[in-house]
């Protein structure tokens, strides 16, 4: 563009100031608050960090949160990838309908999506009625307040975040490459793993990052489907803040969540880059 650079930079100023004042500053203050020993924020110290690190309960909560994210990522890939393949090879009309179906849950409130899973997973819910009618079990199995139930519901809630980047990358794959692979004698499985998967890797990584980030902070789903039996970091942070009024410990929890999510995302990116280099060379 021919516009003077200075004029263009000024346009980013309002949002920059807004983000510094209301995004960066609060997060920095949060770090500060975590270094206080008491709820009234009068004695600086490492007390709450020590409490968090020395208690096996908090380690387990952190580990469970990351584990939940990993499970959800794996489930969304397993269930979502084939749908992305079907989308890639579908005609324009089918594509539009599929895209509509994928987009709708994104726009639908998380509360509504979570509520739907209560109706489905409860003891008189759709799943239990179905398997009891099929005679697979005589007593209803417990799905609410279990990790399995939570992963099932998060799979639906987060799947669009996996599918959207995936299908936009897959749409750019040259169909000739797939034809070439087939005519050179590769089976369709071979074409999938040697051509399509490597070429769709950037979308897959973007999807993994979005799903991981979103599922580890999905407070409503954690608290409604997981109940109080399963504690994840967001729930712990909220309890410490609004029930126990212990801001410093809540701040420690929030920073641990922030750091562990950021580390996992960095790891996903790194692994993704590594394997891409390996695949393309």
């Amino acid at each position: 563009m021919q516009l003077p650079k200075s004029a263009q930079w000024q346009l980013a100023l309002p949002l920059s100031l807004f983000y510094i004042a209301f995004f960066a500053a609060p997060l920095l203050l949060l770090i500060g608050v975590s270094f206080f020993n008491d709820e009234m924020l009068t004695q600086p110290g490492l007390g709450n960090w020590r409490r968090f690190v020395s208690d096996a309960f908090y380690w387990k909560v952190t580990f469970d949160t990351v584990k939940l994210g990993v499970y959800t990522v794996c489930a969304t890939i397993l269930v979502g990838y084939p749908l992305a393949l079907v989308y890639m090879q579908a005609g324009p009309r089918t594509k539009r309908i599929l895209l509509f179906i994928i987009l709708m849950p994104v726009l639908l409130s998380v509360v509504v999506r979570t509520f739907a899973w209560i109706v489905i997973l409860s003891e008189q819910g759709v799943i239990n009625q179905t398997i009891m009618a099929l005679g697979l079990t005589s007593t209803p199995i417990r799905l609410l307040q279990t990790e399995l139930g939570l992963v099932i519901s998060l799979t639906q809630i987060e799947m669009p975040l996996m599918l959207l980047p995936l299908i936009s990358v897959m749409a750019r794959i040259d169909p000739n490459l797939i034809d070439a692979s087939t005519s050179l004698g590769a089976s369709r499985w071979g074409t999938l793993f040697k051509v399509i998967v490597p070429l769709s890797f950037p979308g897959l990584i973007a999807g993994c990052i979005l799903v991981f980030a979103s599922s580890t902070t999905a407070f409503i789903s954690h608290s409604i489907i997981g109940g109080n039996r399963l504690i994840y970091l967001p729930l712990m942070i909220w309890q410490q803040t609004s029930v126990l009024y212990n801001w410093p410990l809540a701040a420690v929890g929030a920073i641990v969540l922030l750091v562990s999510v950021s580390l996992c995302i960095a790891l996903i990116t790194l692994l993704g880059r590594r394997s891409m280099r390996h695949l393309y060379v």
Binding site: A12, L29, L30, V33, A213, T216, W238, I255, L258
Partner: peptide, 23 residues
């Protein structure tokens, strides 16, 4: 700046919510 502006999409919202309350 672009990564700063996009970071609320990735960073845990719950941490930002608490930070905003404290702030």
């Amino acid at each position: 700046m672009d990564s700063l502006f996009m970071s609320p999409l990735i960073l845990p919202g719950i941490a930002f919510g608490l930070a905003a309350l404290v702030y």
